[in-house]
Amino acid sequence: MEQGSLRSSRQCGRSGREPPVCATDNRTFFALRIEELADRLYGVALRFTRNRAAAEDLVSETVVKAWAHLPQLEDRTCFEKWIFRILANTFFSQCRHRREETLAAEEDEDGFSLFDRLHQPFLLWWGNPEQELINKLLCEDLDRALGALPDCYRAVVVSVDLLGHSYAEVAGMLGVPVGTVRSRLNRARSQLQRALWQQAQAAGLVRGSLDEGDAHD
């Protein structure tokens, strides 16, 4: 793992530094924060890996690395952002071996917009189809659409949309140019919205929808 990724950011949290703490306080602080963040660590790990056993391994490895590098965390108010960077970095380092899938996925077209599909005059006649669809989508629908993305696309969506990382941060972690992150994100979101549209059609959640052929521009 790149050491730079483990250094705390000075951009988040309070400006003042936390006072020096002893080893027992370190452990208590660390254990409390891990307990507080366990739901999110596991949730994000699961979205990255799509596999429960792999997600458990990823969280465990992240916790071990975070403890080892805790002395480098200068501002403890940044702990959450810092540990999720470690988690993402750990996952990305596992992904760097999957070049073939990345290259294949990047040939896909982009530009699908759920909003454009729903914002049609004949659909608007019934009310607000966009809001209606958002309300009807189940977590399971979103999870399935996210899970169907190739690893390299899902990784950037999870990093940007779920973790709030900047394009530059993701580019640094993946070792690719910012433009590559931007294009992967655009394609990923396009594929995600297409999958949601197809699921919504199959479940009868959208009225008067365009036929399947029209859904593929």
Binding site: D39, L114, V157, L163
Partner: peptide, 17 residues
């Protein structure tokens, strides 16, 4: 719409271990 969709996606970041 894009903000609302993103909020729904962000809910996936939490899962009881």
């Amino acid at each position: 719409f894009e903000r609302a969709l993103r909020r729904r996606l962000q809910a996936l970041a939490t899962e009881p271990p």
